[in-house]
């Protein structure tokens, strides 16, 4: 008889069962790029494309350790496999650093909103990356490089604490050598063999000569960086609507349910992690 009584809730769609159910993917290559950061190349079953946008993230499962949100660092122009770069900071990320090619992990996603590529087309692109912020930005950078003629000038500002903490050193070299990229790097503290800029990333901004109306800035870095970068961009008079930034929050589900990532009424896992700056200005909790 139970099935004859109609209650208000319809039979749930079987697809919903997949909401928290990761797909098993295989690690195909790894590289320890600094003491703290390790790079992973990952293949989904059948080498299916992840179909992500630059700036989106996946929930990585290590069974027994849980899940963590990790940005996709490869560009969508790379097909068949995707890449992650993980900093060892705690339980799951330490366990992940022990993984080798052939090991399997769970993947859910891609989740959230990435950078608005359509709006960036035809525009000058200004990348501002602090520390591990270069990891999600690399996805955007390589997209622009692979579709170079779709964009205008391409300026990359990258800052790290020390020269030893700079990531993707081979690629940094090719960015420096690429005549179509204006690449500037700085470190907070130099070393004897460092002959580049020393100082926080904001010191690179005043000297830029920008075509203000036509420049889109993509900013990713530690929370403390945003306030100062935004101040520097404002004093350059870059319009707020030309700025995008990516925010980090604690995340447990990635699908707008667990509440951990909430900033005022916005869920970072859904509306972010990449936000249009005018939206962030409406969120008093976003940047402290």
């Amino acid at each position: 008889m139970s099935n004859h009584i109609r209650t208000g809730i319809e039979e749930p769609d079987r697809k919903m069962l997949e909401l928290y159910y990761p797909e098993i993917a295989e690690i195909t290559r790894t590289k320890q790029i600094t003491e703290l950061e390790k790079w992973f190349e990952i293949a989904l079953p059948g080498n299916r494309d992840l179909n992500h946008q630059p700036g989106q993230f996946v929930q990585v499962s290590l069974f027994g350790f849980g899940e963590a949100p990790i940005s996709v660092t490869s560009s969508p122009t790379k097909r068949g496999v995707f890449e992650l770069c993980v900093r060892k900071v705690g339980t799951l990320t330490t366990a992940m650093h022990k993984l080798k090619p052939g090991d399997r992990i769970g993947i859910r996603g891609p989740f959230g909103h990435g950078f608005d590529l359509q709006k960036m087309e035809g525009k000058d692109i200004l990348i501002i990356g602090g520390g591990i912020g270069i990891v999600p930005l690399r996805s955007l950078i390589n997209t622009v490089i692979d579709r170079r003629s779709d964009f205008g000038r391409f300026i990359i500002l990258y800052g790290a604490k020390t020269p030893g903490e700079l990531l993707f050193k081979d690629e940094l070299k090719s960015w420096r050598e690429d005549p179509t990229i204006e690449y500037h790097v700085t470190v907070d503290q130099g070393t004897p063999d460092w002959d580049g800029n020393v100082g926080v990333i904001t010191t690179l901004i005043p000297r830029l000569d920008l075509n203000l109306g036509n420049t889109i800035a993509a900013v990713v870095g530690p929370p403390i960086m945003y306030k100062f970068v935004l101040m520097a961009l404002k004093s350059k008079r870059l319009p707020d609507e030309n700025i995008y930034l990516s925010l980090e929050r604690r995340m447990k589900c990635g699908v707008g349910k667990c509440g951990h990532c909430q900033i005022n009424h916005s869920y970072v896992c859904q509306d972010g992690p990449v936000y249009h700056y005018p939206v962030i200005k409406q969120l008093p909790e976003a940047i402290q």
């Binding site: 209650t7 809730i9 319809e10 749930p12 769609d13 349910k257």
Partner: peptide, 22 residues
Amino acid sequence: LDYNFSQGNPELNYLKRRQNSL
């Protein structure tokens, strides 16, 4: 709660439990 678990990404765990309830 029905709203929270059915909007956006609907969640089977909740909705299934909720389904045959009077």
